[in-house]
């Protein structure tokens, strides 16, 4: 039984040993499922204009609407069921975070690994640019790019990628430089295998563990960044209301005591981000050989 266990099995068993991280992982999974199946789970389709009843706007949690639907978390400024809006918003936020994270991961891994492999001036130039970018806060970079490109989903993803690829490039470069000088790479290079194959099949897989750790943290921070940018009005257009947009929409009603329009989307956002971070912490501890007993 134990002999059959691969790396993944051992990894999962160790992960389950940490109760906080396991709970967090379950929460992330649940949120992801809720987001994917939002059209089936949500009490109403928040974007179907037929569902908007202005008379029911800004009602507190637990209000039963004129059409007889129960609004568990209340309604927003247009009479939309807030719970449904949050589920659909989670969907957009997760989509943006994962998309930006994946692209930044790919670009960063390729840039970092090839810089480490090629060395020389190319490496010096690339890593100097990366270091320079890292000395600026990610939120500032993303904000500037988003402001320059204007509102829109692709513009936002580009801004997030631009702000985040450097973290991946730095990590991939560090790991790949260490691998580059190991005997097995020299051995692979002395065979007639092409350099590209050595980089892609030998060096890159060995840089994955640290990159995966960075990825969890960066997906969480991409979601937070997206929410912040949308809150400021330089992120997604109003036709794609992510959690940040929902919070921004409710902000103007906060002062008159209608807290739920902003606070509940915010809670959903925070539960998501904190859970991903907790999972990321545990993955980092497990993949870090220095902490291995």
């Amino acid at each position: 039984m134990i002999a059959k266990d691969g790396f993944l099995g051992r990894f999962l068993r160790e992960f389950a040993g940490n109760r906080t991280a396991t709970v967090a992982a379950v929460v992330v999974l649940l949120i992801a499922l809720l987001a994917i199946f939002a059209p089936l789970v949500a009490p109403q389709d928040p974007y179907d204009l037929a569902n908007l009843v202005l008379r029911d706007a800004r009602r507190p949690p637990g209000y039963v609407g004129t059409t007889g639907t129960l609004h568990l978390l209340g309604t927003d400024s247009q009479g939309r069921d807030l719970l449904s809006a949050i589920l659909y918003g989670l969907r957009i936020s997760l989509e943006m975070g994962l998309l930006a994270g994946t692209i930044a991961f790919s670009i960063g891994a390729v840039v970092g690994t090839s810089a480490a492999y090629l060395g020389g001036r190319f490496e010096a130039l690339i890593m100097r640019i990366v270091d320079l970018q890292l000395s600026f806060p990610a939120i500032l970079l993303a904000f500037v790019i988003a402001a320059l490109l204007g509102q829109g989903a692709w513009q936002l993803v580009m801004a997030l990628v631009f702000a985040q690829y450097a973290y991946f490039a730095r990590t991939a470069h560090g790991a790949a430089s260490a691998e580059r000088h190991k005997d097995y790479v020299e051995a692979a290079l002395s065979t007639p295998l092409s350099a590209r194959r050595v980089v892609l099949r030998h060096i890159l897989p060995n840089t994955l563990p640290p990159l995966i750790v960075v990825a969890t943290v960066q997906v969480a921070s991409a979601i937070a960044l997206e929410a912040t940018l949308s809150f400021l009005g330089v992120g997604l257009p109003p036709t794609e209301p992510s959690l940040g947009m929902l919070i921004a929409n409710g902000f103007q009603y906060l002062l008159s005591g209608r807290y739920w329009i902003s606070i509940y989307p915010g809670l959903a956002l925070i539960v998501l981000i904190v859970s991903i971070n907790l999972v990321g912490d545990q993955v980092r501890d497990q993949l870090n050989p220095r902490l291995k007993r």
């Binding site: 969480a220 937070a224 929410a227 912040t228 809150f231 400021l232 919070i247 902000f251 906060l254 002062l255 005591g257 807290y259 902003s262 606070i263 915010g266 956002l269 925070i270 981000i273 904190v274 971070n277």
Partner: peptide, 29 residues
């Protein structure tokens, strides 16, 4: 401190306003 790291600062701002300016009325918003 972990919470301070993960929670987006704009949401904390909203909570601060809600608590200290709207509910308690101690400080201006």
């Amino acid at each position: 401190s972990i919470l301070g790291f993960s929670v987006p600062s704009f949401w904390i701002g909203l909570v601060l306003i809600m608590t200290f300016a709207v509910q308690l009325g101690w400080l201006p918003a």
